[in-house]
């Protein structure tokens, strides 16, 4: 971390990643406007990994994991955090080199650090998705997940997408040499109004931790889950042709409901009202929704389906 081009703040790291991947030809998208557990849930990854059309996108995705809430007290754990996500289809032959370039861009020089690709296969039971790849270690710390998607929603990925996921807080804390996430400079520490990560998020972490663990109305959430599930199924079953005779399958609106069901399940899980045996059943229900959305998406233009 003696590198002269070391970033000074959390946001600078994000900005450098955005610039880097924009230079490499990715469409720099914005976060999806729904609550999700990880950047993979963004339709720009889940759905776009399907079908034959080439794709290249990168984006920041706020991610929520209600069970990881620690009232802002744990140095590393948050119920709301950021992932940086890159998805390129087909995966280019030099994807590892591109990735290493992104580390250089944020001040991690692989000639001074020890960067390693350590086996870690990725699987998302809720998305019916899996891939092979690594977790990338920098000096013994996991800084990214690197995956070649093999299946999504139960469908083989052809061509294969390469997916990179950076856990931004952890990566930034390492680059910036910060011990507690709340102490990390969010904007430049020399700004007129310097803000730390804690200035931005300490209060929300406390509030959401309380709500996630103690307050969320479980009866209402169970109902929301059922509603989302029903609406998803209804959209998937709808006629492909509208009243004006236009063919418009609605894969994305259906997928929104699948995402919603998934997040509600996470909230219920955090409230501790889902037993071990029920857990599997809920995951299976969400997977069925995701699978239905994947099936439908594959019939659309965006998937490269013949019109």
């Amino acid at each position: 971390m003696t590198s002269p081009n070391r970033p000074r703040s959390f946001q600078e790291i994000i900005l450098r990643l955005q610039t880097y991947w924009a230079d490499k030809g990715c469409a720099v998208l914005q976060p999806y406007d729904m609550e999700v557990g990880a950047g993979t849930f963004h339709p720009a990854t889940t759905l776009r990994a399907l079908g034959s059309r080439p794709w290249a996108a990168s984006y920041v995705q706020p991610s929520r994991r209600p069970t990881d809430g620690r009232y802002g007290e744990n140095p590393n754990r948050l119920q709301h955090y950021y992932q940086y996500q890159v998805i390129i289809k087909p995966s280019p032959p030099d994807l590892q080199e591109l990735y290493l370039g992104s580390l250089r861009a944020i001040g991690l020089d692989p000639m001074v650090h020890d960067v390693r690709f350590v086996e870690d296969d990725w699987e998302s039971p809720t998305l019916g998705a899996w891939g092979l790849g690594w977790e990338v270690w920098c000096d013994g710390m996991e800084v990214s997940q690197f995956t070649y998607f093999q299946q999504v929603g139960g469908h083989d990925c052809r061509p294969v997408s390469g997916e990179l996921t950076y856990g931004l807080e952890r990566l930034a804390m390492y680059v910036l040499g910060v011990e507690h996430v709340m102490d990390m400079p969010f904007n430049d520490p020399d700004s007129p109004i310097a803000l730390s990560y804690g200035d931005v998020f300490r209060q929300t972490e406390r509030e959401y931790s309380r709500w996630n663990f103690d307050q969320a109305d479980t009866e209402m959430l169970f109902q929301h889950f059922k509603d989302a599930e029903a609406e998803c199924a209804r959209i998937l079953a709808a006629e492909r042709t509208d009243s004006a005779g236009r063919t418009i399958p609605m894969a994305h609106p259906a997928y929104d409901q699948a995402i919603k069901a998934s997040h509600i399940f996470n909230l219920l899980d955090a409230r501790g009202v889902i037993s071990v045996t029920e857990r599997q059943a809920y995951i299976g229900r969400v997977r069925a929704l995701a699978k239905g959305c994947a099936d439908l998406f594959l019939t659309t233009d965006a998937a490269g389906a013949a019109a």
Partner: peptide
């Protein structure tokens, strides 16, 4: 366990 990559 094996995998495919790119368009191959």
């Amino acid at each position: 366990k094996s995998m495919r990559w790119g368009a191959g």
